[in-house]
């Protein structure tokens, strides 16, 4: 498995294209931010890439068998669903599902992956707590830990930092950047363009189902693109602390 390749991917809702003719090559080691206004098709693109939606064109992930895909990519949906009051450790352990054969019980390798994921998300002390009793932001971190326990070479996340406090937004983005540096591929839909500019190696800008721009943050977050796609004017500068991006006003 080398990265994610989409060619001419389109998704239709009735006759209307929600995602139209998108071709992309994403490589291991990239931390890719998927940006665009509400309704641009970010979620649909990721779900189609995973093969969770009927689509035209091809996605290298969607062509895998269901079980292979589970080992190749972890998926964090936007809806943070935790249906039952299971313990945090149990919930994170669900990430091991693709690694278990029929009837196989979790072994020491699975336990190690779960412990590592909990530690990485700073949740070790929460292991025995009931997941549904945690705050929304804590639940979000538990679900990210679940995706980490999956130990897949790819992570696709839909607005993973929405609702987190500023410190955890930064630690989560830092984690994504680290995962990419370790050789994994991270694709995350983001609304915080400032964090996207700071931590992503590459940004993909979508508008009305189409790919508008693709490249390093400085090349994507141009005044022209911002005005055209988001209707925004922003301050952007390279500082000793890294790139700083701050939206200023609606144009």
């Amino acid at each position: 498995m080398t990265g994610l390749t989409l060619s001419n991917l389109s998704v239709y809702r009735g006759p209307c294209p929600v995602v139209e003719d998108i071709s992309l090559n994403l490589h291991p080691g990239e931390c890719v931010g998927l940006i665009g206004p509400n309704g641009a098709g970010k979620t649909t693109l990721m779900r189609a890439a995973l093969g969770l939606l009927p689509h035209k064109g091809t996605s290298s992930l969607a062509r895998l068998s269901t079980a292979e895909r589970g080992r190749a990519a972890a998926w964090l949906p936007q809806m943070r669903e935790i249906a039952w009051p299971v313990s945090v450790e149990t919930l994170v352990g669900l990430g091991r599902t693709p690694h278990l054969g029929p009837g196989q019980r979790p072994g020491p390798r699975d336990a190690a992956a779960i412990a590592a994921a909990l530690a990485r998300m700073d949740l070790t002390d929460f292991a025995a707590r009931r997941a549904t009793a945690l705050s929304g932001g804590e639940q979000a971190r538990v679900l990210i830990a679940r995706a980490l326990a999956q130990e897949a070479p790819m992570l696709l996340a839909d607005e993973p930092i929405a609702g987190l406090d500023p410190a955890h937004q930064i630690t989560t983005m830092r984690l994504f950047a680290d995962l990419a540096a370790e050789g994994r591929l991270v694709l995350a839909a983001l609304h915080d363009l400032g964090l996207a500019a700071r931590f992503c190696t590459r940004l993909i800008l979508m508008q009305r189902g189409r790919l508008v721009a693709d490249g390093p943050p400085a090349e994507v977050l141009t005044p022209d693109n911002l005005a055209r796609v988001f209707g925004l004017r922003a301050y952007m500068a390279d500082t000793p602390d890294g790139p700083v991006f701050q939206p200023l006003e609606v144009v």
Binding site: T66, R69, G70, A73, W75, P77, E81, L94, T97
Partner: peptide, 8 residues
């Protein structure tokens, strides 16, 4: 969605 992505 998550369950299906986990290989179910």
């Amino acid at each position: 969605d998550a369950a299906e992505a986990l290989g179910i």
